[in-house]
């Protein structure tokens, strides 16, 4: 029983990260109807920036906040410079754009900071949480930070003018434009927020998977799995999907013999395909009807 609780809690902790990635993916998907294949690399890049700031002598939390600001600005710049001109381009061109961004970020990170594995400090330490053996303080911290983030996002989209405008721009762009919302800038804002949310995920998972240019491959795949499971049109679903996928991954790894770390990625692949085939709209997504 203790093993079970232990694994579920650990699953919730990694699930928090998957939820972050899924949320970032869904935010961009909501804004422009495309999946950002470079989301993981953007998060990795942000994490490297945080590491660099700490190397320059900043404490964890100042570096954390500064990185968020930089990532936010970076996301907006990427959207303005590279993806805004592609607004009406076919899907293929968008996919090519994301793949290009993926390659650039991965390669530039490797060039700047080397491909060797680096330690990334945890602000929470790694002893048992409140003296219990079930969950470490870092895992508890991961869950805590993500929960705070979710509350803030909920409040932002529910109670602020900008948040409401962003929702309007995502759900009915034409009507939103008619009531005077600058939908183009709302998309840029969505990119900035997605980039910052991804950065949080990256900085929280880095102490676990270590810092290197390819660290986010698996995490992004699970983020996609979470987003698809929750429904690509639902931010709430993405978060639920993230936690579910995290727990699922850990339980499968523990209880099904022969499925260890080495099958981590194929499990995510299977999950994505099963969900897409059985219920493409996910658990909480809306069905989109195509007009002929």
């Amino acid at each position: 029983m203790e093993l079970f609780t232990n694994q579920v809690l650990a699953g919730i902790a990694t699930g928090a990260i998957y939820a972050c990635m899924a949320l970032a993916v869904v935010m961009i998907y909501q804004a422009i109807d495309h999946l950002n294949f470079a989301q993981g690399e953007m998060a990795m890049f942000s994490t490297f920036i945080a590491w660099q700031l700490m190397q320059w002598g900043l404490g964890f939390w100042p570096a954390f906040l500064l990185t968020l600001a930089i990532s936010f600005a970076g996301g907006i710049i990427i959207e303005r410079a590279l993806f805004k001109p592609l607004t009406n381009a076919p899907v293929l061109v968008h996919v090519a754009g994301f793949i290009a961004l993926f390659a650039i970020l991965n390669s530039v990170a490797g060039l700047t900071w080397d491909f060797t594995i680096k330690q990334f400090p945890s602000p929470f330490g790694s002893s048992g949480f409140l003296g219990s053996q079930l969950i470490s303080t870092h895992q508890a911290g991961m869950i805590g930070v993500v929960l705070v983030l979710l509350l803030l996002l909920f409040a932002f989209f529910r109670f602020t003018r900008v948040g409401l405008a962003m929702r309007a721009a995502a759900s009915l762009p034409e009507s939103a434009r008619l009531v005077g919302i600058n939908t183009s800038w709302m998309i840029a804002l969505g990119w900035g927020m997605a980039s910052a949310i991804g950065a949080i995920g990256g900085m929280l998972i880095a102490p676990v998977v270590f810092l290197e240019p390819n660290m986010m491959g698996g995490v992004l795949l699970y983020g996609f799995a979470a987003a698809v499971l929750g429904g690509l049109t639902s931010p709430f679903g993405a978060v639920v999907g993230g936690f579910l996928v995290g727990v699922f991954e850990n339980l499968v790894g523990t209880y099904i013999p022969g499925v260890g770390n080495e099958l981590k990625l194929p499990i995510a692949l299977a999950l994505i395909i099963v969900v897409l085939v059985i219920k493409p709209s996910g658990l909480f997504g809306r069905k989109i009807v195509q007009r002929v």
């Binding site: 592609l86 061109v93 090519a96 754009g97 991965n106 390669s107 530039v108 060039l111």
Partner: peptide, 18 residues
Amino acid sequence: SKGLSGAVFGVLLFAVIF
């Protein structure tokens, strides 16, 4: 430079797209 090819690929891909 080692590891540069990804960046070159990416930049050229954008150049082609645009």
